[in-house]
């Protein structure tokens, strides 16, 4: 069975400096391969700056890999023509970490959620706003919230708006790029509950990118560990990864704040 979305041997460099200066080259991804099966929740963990988010953006088609390819339903996305790319675009959605930064402050929640609806279903702005109301209710907000602007939402509520936007085009995969890392523990737990609920209802595939092992542990079918620009290990759960992952995972476990006073996580 071919994977729904996969990155194969993806490499990515970043260059600093312009044409008048020889810039140093940062080799961020050194041949990363990751598959997301239909309806699977995959966790991607790794330390800050290891290239997790870069891989996420490449899987989303926001950045092109310098080497390697991204496949959606068995086809290379860079080879897709307009219509096929639109299908990929509609099917792979994202929720970002920076909650306030990922919504246009000049648009209402309804317009924000309506944006993919307008683009993918070719409906009017007013119709899109109306169709955003049931989506807001699905993520635990009120339909009337569609008329509010981002500053009037709390961080957790705004993240729900972002989740509603990602759900709007009825995608097959959602990439959560550190989607709960900027929220406090209680709100995090509630948003994760919502994500779990959506998964149960819709059978979507998830890629959950996080540096926080606890977030991934409860939610994912598979966990991939990224280290040094490659996927260093893949296991069924964080607990098995903790046994096999070696020094990096040990350091990540070490740095986790305990779940309660005096406790240690995953020990």
């Amino acid at each position: 069975m071919t994977a729904l979305l996969s990155a194969v041997d993806v490499q990515r460099f970043y260059r600093r400096g312009g044409i008048f200066r020889r810039g140093e080259r940062l080799h961020v991804l050194k041949g990363a391969t990751l598959e997301i099966g239909r309806g699977k929740a995959v966790g991607l963990v790794g330390r800050s700056g290891c290239g997790k988010s870069t891989l996420g953006r490449i899987l989303l088609g926001l950045e092109r890999p310098d080497w390697g390819s991204v496949f959606f339903k068995g086809k290379d996305i860079s080879a897709k023509d307009g219509g096929e790319f639109a299908k990929f675009r509609k099917s792979v959605q994202v929720v970002f970490q920076n909650v306030q930064g990922s919504v246009n402050p000049r648009m209402t929640a309804g317009e924000i959620i309506g944006e993919p609806l307008r683009n993918f279903f070719g409906i009017s702005k007013r119709e899109a706003v109306e169709r955003s109301r049931p989506l807001l209710e699905q993520v635990g907000l009120k339909g009337s919230d569609a008329d509010k602007f981002p500053p009037h939402f709390s961080g957790g509520e705004l993240q729900r708006v972002c989740i509603a936007r990602a759900l709007a085009p009825e995608p097959e995969v959602i990439v959560f790029d550190e989607a709960v890392s900027s929220l406090d523990m209680v709100v995090q737990a509630r948003v994760l509950e919502l994500v779990q609920k959506i998964r149960d209802e819709r059978g979507l595939a998830f890629l959950f990118i996080s540096h926080d092992l606890r977030v991934v542990a409860g939610l994912c079918d598979e966990v991939a560990l990224m280290d040094g620009g490659v996927i260093a290990a893949r296991e069924r759960s964080v607990a098995t990864l903790a046994k096999t992952g070696g020094a990096t995972i040990a350091r990540m476990l070490e740095s986790l704040p305990p779940a309660g006073p005096g406790e240690r996580a995953f020990r």
Binding site: L60, L62, V92, V94, F96, S102, V103, N104, N119, R165
Partner: peptide
């Protein structure tokens, strides 16, 4: 991120400029 999110939401070219960049 909201520009990236708009791209993921399928907004391209002129609409991206008119809706998100110029304002």
């Amino acid at each position: 991120e909201y520009i990236l999110a708009a791209k993921v939401a399928g907004t391209r070219g002129f609409s991206l400029v008119a809706r998100h960049i110029l304002p």
